[in-house]
Amino acid sequence: KESVILEKVIKHSLQSRWALWFFKNVKSQPWQCNLRLVTTFNTVEDFWSLYTHIQLASKLSSGCDYSLFKDGIEPMWEDSRNKRGGRWLITLSKQQRHSDLDALWLETLLCLIGEAFDEYSEEVCGAVINIRAKGDKIAIWTRETENREAVTHIGKVYKERLGLSSKVVIGYQAHADTATKSSSLSKNKFVV
């Protein structure tokens, strides 16, 4: 009983409760059946106990995704908190799966749970990592494409946190555009 009380005292609460989702592509099943909620957490300590017990992203098979979203927001365009939003997209080369992917994803998670985007952190819905044979992708999703100031602030901070060179340009795409076009052809609404 004492240890339960102590645990509550010493755990470090996060600003938001977060939900980790796992997607595994089973083609015989509808998309939504392949998406599972793993768990939710709202302390720094519980984040790490989850992170250290799940497979690294680079070890997942092609077609799998992890998503970390604020609890209550589903990791899909259709969710009312996502549908007017978009994503800052990081596309990686095949070689980067072994050199960079896990570090970039961890940094993305730390940006989210640490509320790295200052007063604009409320605009963040979540982040997704897609493991794909043709090249992996990581993205931070925000709720409203029209909030230009918030979106560009988030993009600038995110790019800096990932340690990307100033020569690298990352783009922000509206989900509404991605949903109607082949994702690789979606045009960037903003770049940083």
Partner: peptide, 20 residues
């Protein structure tokens, strides 16, 4: 106020033993 944590603070908890 908002609970903001920088990366070094968060990383400091990575290898702490879990509470039992």
């Amino acid at each position: 106020g908002k609970r903001q944590y920088d990366r070094d603070f968060l990383l400091g908890f990575q290898y702490m033993p879990a509470c039992v």
